[in-house]
Design a protein around this nucleic acid. Structure first.
Lengths: 228, 228
DNA sequence: TAAAATCAAATCCTATATGATATTGCATTT
DNA sequence: AAATGCAATATCATATAGGATTTGATTTTA
């Protein structure tokens, strides 16, 4: 098995990347892309053979994914991809977002510098343009990731590592995409982001809070159609 | 290696418990009890020999603990217990709690039934009595666990699985105990819990919000002494 | 025919072996 | 005496093997 290597950001050094880590990424991608659909079994030895690695790193990757909530484990039975969000879980998730994200937007606004504002604006504009997608699914998938990136940039500026990690641990974009992979990119979401940016540019923290609250509420209302 | 078994709650069936799981628990206990102090190396083969198991389940347990934030991993170097909370992390954690817990207390109050109130009251009274502790450390350790249980009972009633899990993922009682293991059980905390219970009994959701907010703020102020 | 029992294949969980990498201590050099 | 280089040891990461359990189908029995 050839050792996968990666260029280190700091120096130009090349250092080996663990097989377990790359297996983790590959399984994550398969779940995100619905190649492994919700509820599907994920046999360890099958994956190991398919990826040309041994079972040990596959086990390690699945253990991590379980703790991340993306797969489930039944002792002596095996792993399977986590099922779709239920309506209740969806509602809980959005209540959770509404508790954390508007306040984080307010805090981000207070911490804002020209550099960090530019980063957020860059993340926002990344969502509009982009390579021509091969199909609608991949387009929405990319939209979901870019949206997650935009929100995370705001979280970075809000500068609360606990809150940021709790948000990222939810893998919101993955669950949303699995729920609505057939969805289309809405112009509305982009406009709501624009409102948020306007509040940031004006340095109006309360307006940022409101804009984020509004954005998440509307996002919830758009997605709730998946359950009807 | 003898297989560890456990009695199933439902039927009287006996089913094997995985070694990986029991290793996970044992390492958790060692970290909680400071037997493995913050920052200490945790060699895989050493632990495996000591616990009379192979390296595979130890690896799996450590992978889970890493994802839980209790240990850190450096590729090709090894695992170590996570360091103490920094002041910044402590502050972030309490801001996080203040965003989620008061609102959860409000919601719990709205959902309250006689049965669930009784459960919460039971958790509260568990904190006051208890076996005579062998030393002050173990007493505070038990206090920390009981406090976590009390807060979690409220989370259960609030009935938002996302919020509840995000809270539990923080392992607050473990970090607090490691920070303040020499601390003593304060009468104040018990009184604050009593205020919260009073609001619950009165069915006053706003008062429950305020009581929880007050309790967490005061808790933070009591603990912040650890950094001075 | 339906239910129970049996058996084989698949899969899991754990143990062990092996090569690769990092760390440590000692010797050597400057 | 400090610094450097090298070898030995410790530890990690992965591969592979074997015992244990579940699953599913086939056979048997009521």
């Amino acid at each position: 098995m050839a050792v996968v290597t990666d260029r280190d950001r700091n120096g130009g050094f090349v250092r080996p990347l663990s097989i377990a880590e790359s297996v983790h990424e590959r399984i994550y991608e398969r779940i995100m892309s619905l190649e492994i659909p919700p509820g599907a079994r994920i046999p360890i030895d099958g994956l190991a053979r398919e990826l040309n690695v041994s079972q040990t790193p596959v086990r390690e990757a699945l253990t991590r994914l379980e703790r991340e909530g993306l797969v489930q484990k039944a002792h002596l039975i095996g792993y399977s991809a986590s099922p779709q969000l239920t309506r209740k879980e969806f509602d809980d998730l959005y209540k959770f977002r509404l508790l954390l994200e508007p306040e984080s937007a307010r805090q981000a606004c207070l911490n804002l510098t020209p550099e960090t504002l530019a980063r957020i604006e860059g993340a926002a504009s990344d969502m509009e343009k982009g390579e021509p997608p091969v199909d609608r699914n991949s387009r929405y998938s990319r939209f979901a990731r870019a949206d997650a990136h935009f929100h995370d940039e705001i979280m970075k500026v809000a500068d609360n590592a606990t809150v940021r990690q709790a948000m990222n641990d939810q893998h919101i974009h993955l669950h949303i995409f699995r729920l609505m992979f057939h969805s289309r990119v809405t112009q509305e979401a982009l406009e709501e982001h624009e409102h948020l940016l306007a509040a940031f540019r004006a340095g109006d923290a309360d307006a940022a809070y409101e804009a984020m609250h509004d954005h998440i509420s509307r996002s919830r209302d758009r997605l709730v159609a998946a359950f009807e």
